[in-house]
Design a protein around this nucleic acid. Structure first.
Lengths: 329, 329
DNA sequence: TTGTACGCGTTATCAG
DNA sequence: CTGATAACGCGTACAA
């Protein structure tokens, strides 16, 4: 690999000058046109590539943005990650993605790895499970990072201290429930979630509040997963029960798609026999024309990157959401 | 940040000894138990974290594995990425994911960024489009990397030289087509693809071969996309035509899911009115019990990591695939 | 078994 | 406008 030294030598200038040209630092440290040209040409013929490692060592941090995702397969987080990646690339950063399976220990080890690599900032996608073992250790680690000046952003409710950019989960579930209630649905069940998972519990709380306010009895089922497979299984079980609800609100679009498949397999009609609504706003939801809360997933990712790249700008207020009325209700 | 020096000083040993303990290099360079204990304790109390930048600078390459994905939102590539991430983490590497939108220019700039970061290896997910502008420049860059010893692995057919781990696309399409033909389907259409996209064209070729061999006329439609949205649109258009096929083979599971939604929306029955098959083997396909070619996506990712982490082992032969018989045919 | 000292490629500082 | 030089944190050849 050609180094800055090599370029400087070939161009007949000092490494300092070469560095200035190659970094556009010739604003405050002017460089003659001849020198600039010579350096550029030398760099081109040598195929010079700068060393991110050396720069990171010198600067104390790299141009890496870390993402710790609860599940990189889940389109919900994938959308966020995509938003992050696009914004990061525009700002000249690269995105390091780590999968953590909602396990605090894995989150911590990934967090540490990211810090070892001098990440400019770390973004958490996915909320945490209350009282899960390892939570305290993770929190301590996050605090240290914060203290040392590494921005940590959470795109979901989190029990540790960090910049948080998140839409109101309780409100989204409340709104979609009221929406179905207003449409005349009576017996609405809530499908999906994970015990202690903050975002999921908040959604259930919103659902409950809406139901109580309308004098209906809430019914929560399939509280053991947040993906298509668990949504499918939970709905299959639900359909086997004596009394079948006339509408389903699912903890996320993924669960809703699973529910849709189950209902379709059972030979029931949507929405005539059972209506379905989700929360999320992913492409799959749109393809099935799912009634859902449309969350600005990619935008959330963009805002998180903003926070890291330009910390001075302060914490942006989370964007709003809207109800998308599909043909599943 | 505490440095190795700090740890060594607190432990009352030299940096060498500290380094040996902290890296497990005390195989060939034995360290006394007292020293080892002292170092470990010092590291713990200081909250020592090693600097990946310094190590990368020293070693000439980092423990980063780069992934250039055609579309990080596509579950097909997301599955691969997940396989990569898991295998990489096990080997002590972190995964850098870049989105390239099948654009050679974007691929090249991401490739360069990854190289600047001293990636130990770079994996391409997604094949390329024949004759697309920028292809030559990308190829040149890849060649340079190869020459300099950076492994480049492609998990899809690619026009540049690189280690390639890929299942036989032509054969998968041929097999699934024969499968449907054998089931008695007569008028089978092929949905999806992208002009010039290697993987897609090979699948179409396999479909054509099977059809010709059975004396049927091939019909390719919706040759303008590989995702749910395009699959949905293509199928909608198809259903509006005077003659409707009795089965659809889709270029991938994503297209198939889109097709399924369109058929469902049109009020037709699956598989009685139209059968559907995909190629892929993603979770969404399984949830809808889609008949499909089950590709070992995660395994492909694992193998790619293997190549990078342990280059001496040589190129693994690509794993096989199987037909999964669902209820959509 | 332990330690000394150098250099990896860059950039900030300071001196011309 | 230009350049010499000193770190940044680590690993390792070499010496003891």
């Amino acid at each position: 690999m050609a180094t800055l030294r090599d370029v400087a030598r070939l161009a007949g200038v000092s490494v300092t000058t070469a560095s200035r040209v190659l970094n556009g630092t010739d604003r405050d440290h002017p460089v003659s046109d001849v020198a600039r040209a010579a350096v550029s040409e030398a760099a081109a013929t040598l195929g010079y590539r700068r060393s991110a490692a050396a720069r990171a060592l010198k600067n104390g941090h790299s141009h890496l943005i870390g993402v710790i995702s609860a599940d990189i397969l889940d389109p919900y987080f994938a959308e966020m990650t995509r938003g992050i990646e696009i914004a990061a690339a525009q700002a000249g950063y690269v995105t390091v993605v780590a999968n953590a399976n909602r396990d605090p220990f894995q989150e911590r080890s990934r967090f540490q790895a990211l810090r070892e690599h001098g990440a400019a900032g770390i973004i958490f996608c996915g909320s945490d499970i209350e009282g899960a073992p390892g939570t305290a250790e993770l929190a301590r680690e996050v605090n240290r990072a914060l203290k040392e000046g590494t921005p940590v952003i959470s795109l979901a409710p989190r029990s540790f201290a960090s910049t948080t950019i998140v839409v109101d989960n309780e409100a989204t579930a409340y709104d979609i429930t009221v929406h179905l209630l207003t449409q005349g649905h009576e017996d609405i069940a809530f499908v999906g979630g994970l015990p202690g998972l903050a975002a999921a519990e908040m959604r259930i709380a919103g659902y409950r509040r809406a139901m109580y306010e309308h004098g209906k009895l809430p019914r929560v089922t399939g509280h053991h997963g947040m993906n298509q497979v668990t949504g499918h299984a939970a709905t299959e079980a639900l359909l086997a029960e004596p009394s079948i609800p006339d509408a389903l609100i699912c903890t996320n679009d993924e669960s809703a798609i699973g529910a849709l498949a189950a209902i379709w397999h059972a030979g029931l009609r949507i929405p005539d026999d059972i209506a379905i609504a989700g929360i999320g706003g992913t492409d799959t939801g749109r393809v099935f024309d799912l009634t859902s809360i449309e969350l600005p997933l990619g935008e959330l990712g963009r805002l998180a990157v903003e926070c890291i790249v330009n910390p001075a700008a302060g914490v942006p207020s989370p964007p709003g959401y809207s109800i998308r009325e599909g043909r599943t209700t």
